[in-house]
Each structure stands twice: as structure tokens, then as C-alpha cells.
Write a protein that binds this DNA or RNA. Structure first.
Length: 883
RNA sequence: GGGCGAUUAGCGCAGCGGUAGCGCAGCAGCUUUACACGCUGUGGGUCGGGGGUUCGAAUCCCUCAUCGCCCACCA
């Protein structure tokens, strides 16, 4: 027999089996298969991204689901791929080119040259995250890997655009959009993050003008603003129509300071008379609310801030070309100098930031493409009525709220990296098609929002619009695993696209993971330096350890507080499993055949029942996506039950030639089941052990050769099996009682001051008959030299004694007995028991309890009281004996 | 301003109407022939506060507080 290492060494094992799985095509999904289908599409990571702990969480869950489905006999597709991630990728590449000194701005290269550079970048960095997912053990069907800018995929995107255009759902319009002045592109509402900021609320005086347009000395209108620089583009001052204070001002004009422009005082419902002075400056081109008012009152739209965030010529000589923040300062100074600023109070408000560039967004008037969402009603209904289920369910509220207030989607981006909008123009003509209509036509220069391609992901990856076998077999997909932060960006939109183009939902279940935080509850971020590299963790602890550690601490729907200690625990756990199997392998002896029911001892029955319970609970937990519970059940089964109790007790049976073979058969049975239960969580080590222990032989060669991946998922032991093997409550209870004896006995050693290593003799006065095996097991579990059954044993005074349900256990001390210590222990114990008695009695003495509580509860309490009283009597007697 | 979630042992969580549990950390003792990535034992909580319903509440209802998310055009 080859030497088995004492500690599990993941590195080589992981490489070996991943290659084996790939070579054996274990991950391949066959659309022609007769088996029922199970499918997941991966949330495509950014093509140039690297693996984060968030990916680890998300993809481990998907891998568990996929591996579980395969073992349960489903034809399983986990479809992988990457997203071109428009802004993110373009920004990264541009930054890198700048850093290399190649360019200062992408304009220097021009569109085609720049795109070449991005593709180069993509080729170089594009595969990294995919390789990292492989290290994690992801069982994706890599042959089907897709990229949102693959030629076929791009065609899908453009065809969908063309279709929606012809349906009249896509239109172009000049609107106020969220503008990112750093990336110089429009953004959707979802890409804007509101950040609370401490700023100022400036109060300015605008001079009132007379009919001739001259300032009336001493008469002013007071306005307040957080954005002084926009006043250069003011076109009105607004008050509420029914505000008595200003009724007489409506229709008059003010002279806009710094610009010396006459602008009207208008009345608009939008103004809140209770806020500030009740007068609002109106900048129609630079504020969404003001824009609305501007439209209603037909005000000019003077643009004073340009696309790059600098002031335009319209802002006037003095301010043109100034950055908007510099202009703010300049305007304030100027107005202050003119005596028109009355105060600047501290003010906390929320400012929209670009999620990508992390700069304040600018409301900006520009021509953009918009989509009026299709299939809204169906998509709303599907989630509201459980046709698509969200886990945890509460996210459906968020979804429904958004769907109920849905606004048109700004889908055009002023970027180069992405799907170019299939619109062609010549003079006043416009055509919507993929290819150029011919000479003299130029294509719209905008590209589409990244999400306009990802919303097609569940079917565009499977060959749509062709009716492929993959679509027939695997659409709609079964589960989607993603974060709640992209519920609007992606989940909602996929649902709508699914209904619109497939006439069917894209997935049945959506599992929303939590967000990974550090142990202080902070989000992972590069700047905080609290974001560990998963690859380092895999290298140090192994992929299985990382997976198990993360799953152990990921409760459904709650954020995950990551602590490296969890990964360490995962490693320890793998090592425990390794050594449990190592123990079996060191026993030699071939894998035996059937378990002989006649030879089963109490421990065998007990562990088989524990296995049965674990399978039942695990199946239940996984059905409800409770992965942390599942991990805990596995932990308990292997560590707390199999290793701590069963294997130790089994050492007794293994020493008995008559029982040995049968015990080995039980061990093998339990281990074989355990490895399979563990496999979705920790695939590498389980495959290594499965193969190493020869369990493969149990299975016929099937799909992808012999592997634990296609071993069948354990089912709870059925009733016949349990009856045949005598597995019943009494059997379990018996061992529980016997183990109580062991625990108590271990305690006696301690009070007797016996060193853990020292072998001692116990005497046992049984109330329940124990077999020779049971006595032997107790002896081993107690590390005793011997345990002697003496029904009528009279213990000498001061003998540490444990009164158990099964009988009384004595540890006769040779020589010195620490009577004091034993007395102290018993007194403490007695007090505890007394407290329980008091509690029970108090309850039972309450007349309304005994009258109104159900008889079963009453009886239970009475029984409890009786038990405690009996225990009390025993302890008291022992204590009295010591004196 | 609306909505959602959390609040149980030092930390992370389970329990969701009938004796407060698990893991880790802590403490004490152990090279017991699978594992020190280990073994054994053990201390620790008036279940965020206050009210209510009930024979009985961590669990149901109301209310307050703290923390965290999401949504909303108060300049």
C-alpha cells in the first residue's frame, strides 16, 4: 500500500482532476439527452476582470447547483462566458494607454485604431478570469463559452435593436440625460449612484427689473442653490402659483446677475413654497426639474456646461473653459463681491455620481436613443404570481416597485467599445439595418449600453434566433444566481427580453446572494485593502477549502462577513475528511460486499441513522438554497458524528475478527455516501478520495467515464432498508444513552484528577444490559484500561460517580481521592438540578397552566419534573455518602 | 419622505409559541497507534428597549431605538 500523506495536499490533486474532468468531457451538456434538463447561465464577468470573492461566492453556488443536478440525473448545462463591459473596459484600456504614454486622449488614435488596441487588450487579459474560475473548480461547459461581442452575439444584439426600432419602441430624442463628463457619455438612471455629501446652500439676490428692464434699486428676489455655476444659464425664477407672498411678482422679470439678462418670474406647481425662500432659480438645460419647467413654460435652454464638464462659451467670457467646480467658486466670489450673496449655509444633500468614473454626473441635454420596455406587463405578472420565483422572496418587492415605475431606458453611449447602433443616415434619410445601405451613408457613431447585450444572455448564448437544440432542451433555464445590486440592470431586463423574444421566461428561479464584506462589515474594496485575492487563498488553502469556508458563512439573502479564518476552517475540514478516509485505507481489507444485518452493532445502526438524517436534512436545505445550513449539516455528520463517535467506537469492532468485515462494510457505505454528499461543495478532494478508495467500482461506467461527478446523489434510506437493518428510534436512543455514559465517564477522569493519557479502571452498575461490544466501545471511548460490569457494586466513600440513564458509572480511585473536588462538583451539579426542578414546579403549580395547557404539554412537564427529581435524589445520596 | 432587512454567548449564525442551540474564539488538560489542519473536558446569554396577546413569548402584535441597504425632482 502506498504511503498516504498525513495532511491533504490540494495543489496537485486539483490540477489532476480538473484536467481529468475536462478530458472526459464531464462538463459537456448534451441537448439530445433523454434525461430531464437543468441549466444555468453564468452572470458573465467582465472580460478583462479578475476573480474576486464575490465571484467565488456566486460561482461556488452555481457549481454546487450544477454538480448536484448532474448527480441527481439531470442533463446539466452551465453555460459560461464573459461580458465586454463597455465603459469599464474602455476606461481601463484608455488609462493604460495613457500610462504608457501612447496617448493623452483616445481621440488622438481615432476610433478604428483605438478599437484595435481594445481587442489586443481583450486577447491578452480576456482569458484570465475564465482560468481563475477553472481553478475554483467551476464545472461549466467550456465548449459553449460565449462573449457578448462574438460575431453571432453581436448580430443578435443588432437584430433586436432593429426589431424594437420597427416596433416603434426605440426612438431618438433630445432629452435631459445623466452625463458622465469624465467618460463623456450618457448613462442610464441605474448607473447613477446617489451619494450623500456635505455642501453649501448659497442664497443669492436677483435684482427685480422694472417694465423697461432696468434693475429697481433695493428690490430683490431671493433664491437658494447648491449649484451656483448653473445660474449662468438661468432662464427664469419660479414660485408656487398660490404662494401669496409672490403673487404680485408673477409675470415680472429679474435681471440675472453676471449675465445682465432679463428672465421672467414664472409660477409652477413644482415649487415647494415651504422650502427655502419659496423662490427657485430655473436652469432648464442643467437640472431635470428645471428642464420640465422649461418645457412647460417654453423657456430657452441655454447650455453653459459642455460635454467635458467645462463651462461653455454661453457661460460668458469670464467663465468659459473653467471646470464646473472652478466656475462654482468663481461665481460665488463674484456674486459675493457684488453684494448679492446673502448667505452660504452648510447643507447636506445627495449628489448623483457616475458608478463607473466616480465623478458627479451632470444633467445634460443631448440627443440619445431610448427604449420603451417591451413585455412589461407579462414580466411584472410573472414575478408577482410566482411563475418566476425569487429567493429570498422579498426581492420581488423591489423588482415590482421598479417595474411599476419603469421609465424609458437610455440605451445609447458615446463610446467606441461596444455594439454600434445599426442606424444609417444620408442627408435627412435614416435607415435601421446592419449593413450599410450604400454610398454616402454614415452610421450612427454611438454604441449600445452594455446591458443592451447582456439582457439577451439566456437565449443569445444558445444560438437564438435559430431554433437550436440547445434552446429547445435548456431554455428556460432553471436557476439564475446573481447579486441583488443588478436586479434592475440585468434581472428585470432579461425577464422582459425573454418574454419578448422567446415568448417565455428566461429562468424559473433567481437566487440572490449577499454581498461579501469584511469581518467589520465593510464592503470589499481595493482602496481599503480588505479585498483578498482568491487565487492566493486557493494556493494557500486549496479551492475546496475556500469554497467550503465561503459556503459555511453565506446565509440565504444576507451579506457574507468574510474572515480568512473561515477558509482555514475549510482546510481543516478537508483534512478531517482526508484523514477519516486515510484511517479506513490503513485498515487494509478489500471493500466488502453487502452489510450483514445480523452483524450490525448498536454503533453501526446509530451512524446509519445519522447518515439517513443528514441526507434528509441536506436535501431539504439544498431545495431551499440554504447552503450554509447544508455545510453545517455536512460538518456535523462527518466531524461530530462519524469521526468523534462512530470511528472511535468502531475501533472496538475492528479489533474483533468476527465483527471486523461487517464494520468495514458499514464504514465504506457511510464514506461512499458521505463523499457523494460532499462532492458538490468540495469537488476535488471528494474525487481524489472516491477514486483512491475504489468506490468507483460500485458504479457502472457512464457518461464521462467513472467519476464521482456522475455517482448518484444519495437518497434518504427508505423504510424497507431501515426495517431490514433494524434502524429505528430505539437503536439511536440506545447509543445516545451509552454516549452519555462516556461523556460522564470522561468527566469523572477529570474530577478524579486523572491525566488524559492515563489508563484507568471503571466499574459500571448497569440498569440496561450492555453487550460485550458496547462495553468494549465504552472502554475505548473512555481510554480506559478496563470497564467492569458489577450490578451490585458498593462504591467506597469518595468514589467519583456518574448517574446515567443506563446505569451508574464509578471511577474507583486507588490511593488519593480528592473528596473535596468531588464534593464541589456534586454540589454544583445539584444546584443546577434544583434550579430545573424549581422551574418545572413553578410552572406546574400555576393553576392556569395545568388547566389550560394541552395535556401532552402538561404530561411532558410532569415527566421532566420527575426525571429531575430522580436525578436529584441520586446526586444527594452520593453526596451524603461522601461526608 | 417611502420601502426592505438586521438586532440571540466575545465573533459569525440557527431557532420563529412549550426545558436557549451550533461553529469559532476563550479557559483547562492531553504526542490516546486517521488527523496538533488534532483529542478531551469546560465557563459564558434577563434572546436591542418598552408595552400588549397567551396558561406560556427569542418566537405573534404594537411601539421606540440603533445599524445597514434600496427607492424618491425639495432648489
Amino acid at each position: 500500500m502506498p504511503e498516504i500523506p498525513k495532511a491533504y495536499e490540494p495543489r496537485a490533486v486539483e490540477e489532476k482532476w480538473y484536467r481529468f474532468w475536462l478530458d472526459s468531457k464531464c462538463f459537456a451538456a448534451d441537448p439530445q439527452s433523454a434525461k430531464p434538463a437543468y441549466s444555468i447561465v453564468i452572470p458573465p464577468p467582465n472580460v478583462t476582470g479578475v476573480l474576486t470573492l464575490g465571484h467565488v461566492l456566486n460561482n461556488t453556488i452555481q457549481d454546487i447547483l450544477a454538480r448536484l443536478a448532474r448527480m441527481k440525473g439531470f442533463e446539466t448545462l452551465w453555460l459560461p462566458g464573459t461580458d465586454h463591459a463597455g465603459i469599464a473596459t474602455q476606461t481601463v484600456v484608455e488609462k493604460s494607454l495613457r500610462k504608457q504614454g501612447v496617448i493623452k486622449h483616445r481621440d488622438e488614435l481615432g476610433r478604428d485604431k483605438f478599437l484595435e488596441k481594445v481587442w489586443e487588450w481583450k486577447e491578452k487579459h480576456g482569458g484570465i478570469i475564465i482560468e481563475q474560475l477553472k481553478r475554483l473548480g467551476a464545472s461549466c461547459d467550456w465548449e459553449r463559452e460565449r462573449f457578448t461581442m462574438d460575431p453571432e452575439y453581436s448580430r443578435c444584439v443588432q437584430n433586436v435593436f432593429i426589431d424594437l426600432y420597427h416596433k416603434g419602441l426605440i426612438y431618438r430624442g433630445k432629452r435631459m440625460v445623466n452625463w458622465d463628463p469624465s467618460a463623456r457619455t450618457a448613462l442610464s438612471d441605474e448607473e447613477v449612484e446617489m451619494v450623500e455629501e456635505r455642501g453649501k446652500l448659497w442664497h443669492f439676490k436677483y435684482p427685480l427689473a422694472d417694465d423697461a428692464g432696468r434693475a429697481v434699486p433695493g428690490e430683490f428676489v431671493m433664491v437658494a442653490t447648491t449649484r451656483p455655476e448653473t445660474m449662468l444659464g438661468d432662464e427664469a425664477v419660479a414660485v408656487h402659483p398660490s404662494d401669496p407672498r409672490y403673487a404680485n411678482l408673477i409675470g415680472r422679470r429679474v435681471l440675472l446677475p453676471l449675465r445682465d439678462k432679463l428672465i421672467p418670474i414664472i409660477a409652477d406647481e413644482l415649487v415647494d413654497p415651504k422650502f427655502g425662500t419659496g423662490c427657485v432659480k430655473v436652469t432648464p438645460a442643467h437640472d431635470p426639474a428645471d428642464y420640465e419647467m422649461g418645457m412647460r413654460h417654453q423657456l430657452p435652454m441655454t447650455v453653459v456646461i459642455a460635454a467635458d464638464g467645462r463651462m461653455s462659451a454661453e457661460a460668458g467670457e469670464e467663465f468659459a473653459r473653467l471646470d464646473r467646480m472652478e466656475a462654482r467658486k468663481a461665481v460665488v466670489e463674484k456674486l459675493e463681491a457684488l453684494g448679492l450673496m446673502t448667505k452660504a449655509e452648510d447643507y447636506t444633500h445627495r449628489v448623483g455620481y457616475s458608478q463607473r468614473s466616480n465623478v458627479p454626473i451632470e444633467p445634460y441635454l443631448s440627443s440619445q436613443w431610448f427604449l420603451k420596455y417591451p413585455a412589461v406587463e407579462k414580466s411584472t405578472h410573472a414575478v408577482a404570481h410566482g411563475e418566476i420565483r425569487f429567493h429570498p422572496e422579498r426581492w420581488s418587492k423591489t423588482y415590482l416597485h421598479w417595474m411599476g415605475n419603469i421609465k424609458d431606458w437610455c440605451i445609447s453611449r458615446q463610446l467606441w467599445w461596444g455594439h454600434r447602433i445599426p442606424i444609417w443616415r444620408r442627408d435627412d434619410e435614416e435607415k435601421c439595418q446592419i449593413e450599410s445601405p450604400g454610398e454616402g451613408w454614415t452610421q450612427d457613431s454611438d454604441v449600445l449600453d452594455t446591458w443592451f447585450s447582456s439582457w439577451l444572455w439566456p437565449f443569445a448564448t444558445m444560438g437564438w434566433p435559430q431554433e437550436t437544440s440547445a434552446l429547445k432542451k435548456f431554455y428556460p433555464t432553471t436557476d439564475l444566481v446573481t447579486g441583488p445590486d443588478i436586479i434592475f440592470f440585468w434581472v428585470a431586463r432579461m425577464i422582459m427580453a425573454g418574454y419578448e423574444y422567446m415568448g417565455e421566461k428566461p429562468f424559473q428561479n433567481v437566487y440572490f446572494t449577499g454581498i461579501i464584506r469584511d469581518k467589520q462589515g465593510r464592503k470589499m474594496s481595493k482602496s481599503l485593502g480588505n479585498s483578498p485575492d482568491p487565487l492566493d487563498l486557493i494556493n494557500q488553502y486549496g479551492a475546496d477549502a475556500l469554497r467550503f469556508g465561503v459556503m459555511r458563512s453565506a446565509p440565504l439573502g444576507q451579506d457574507v462577513l468574510y474572515d480568512e479564518q473561515q477558509v482555514e476552517l475549510g482546510r481543516n475540514f478537508c483534512n478531517k475528511l482526508w484523514n477519516a478516509c486515510r484511517f479506513r485505507q490503513m485498515q487494509a481489507g478489500e471493500v466488502e460486499g453487502e452489510i450483514d444485518p445480523a452483524k450490525l452493532n448498536a454503533d453501526d445502526k446509530w451512524i446509519l441513522l445519522k447518515l439517513h438524517a443528514a441526507i434528509t436534512e441536506l436535501t431539504e436545505a439544498l431545495d431551499h438554497y440554504k447552503f450554509n445550513e447544508a455545510a453545517q449539516i455536512l460538518h456535523r455528520l462527518l466531524w461530530g458524528e462519524f469521526c468523534d463517535w462512530y470511528l472511535e467506537a468502531a475501533k472496538a469492532a475492528l479489533a474483533d475478527p468476527a465483527a471486523r468485515d461487517n464494520t468495514l462494510a458499514v464504514i465504506d457505505f457511510v464514506l461512499s455516501n458521505t463523499l457523494r454528499l460532499f462532492h458538490p461543495f468540495i469537488p476535488f478532494i471528494t474525487e481524489e478520495l472516491w477514486q483512491g478508495m475504489g468506490f468507483n467500482a460500485e458504479l457502472p461506467a457512464g457518461q464521462g467515464g467513472q467519476t464521482i461527478m456522475y455517482a448518484h446523489w444519495p437518497k434518504p434510506l427508505d423504510e424497507d432498508f431501515r426495517a431490514h437493518y433494524g434502524l429505528n428510534d430505539a437503536a439511536a436512543k440506545f447509543v445516545d444513552m451509552r454516549n452519555e455514559l462516556v461523556t460522564q465517564g470522561r468527566n469523572l477522569r477529570r474530577v478524579g484528577g486523572i491525566q488524559s493519557g492515563k489508563k484507568v479502571k471503571f466499574i459500571f452498575a448497569p440498569r440496561t444490559a450492555l453487550s460485550a461490544h458496547d462495553l468494549e466501545a465504552v472502554k475505548i471511548l473512555l481510554h480506559a484500561e478496563s470497564i467492569e460490569a458489577q450490578p451490585d457494586y458498593q462504591a467506597p466513600k469518595g468514589t467519583p460517580t456518574a448517574h446515567c440513564e443506563m446505569g451508574d458509572l464509578y471511577l474507583p480511585l486507588e490511593g488519593v481521592a480528592d473528596v473535596g473536588a468531588e464534593k464541589e462538583r456534586l454540589t454544583k451539579e445539584l444546584a443546577k438540578v434544583q434550579a430545573e426542578i424549581d422551574k418545572a414546579q413553578q410552572k406546574l403549580n400555576n393553576p392556569s397552566f395545568s388547566q389550560k395547557a394541552p395535556p401532552a404539554v402538561l404530561a411532558e412537564h410532569q415527566q421532566r419534573l420527575a426525571d429531575w427529581q430522580a436525578k436529584h435524589a441520586q446526586l444527594a445520596a452520593t453526596l451524603a455518602g461522601l461526608a
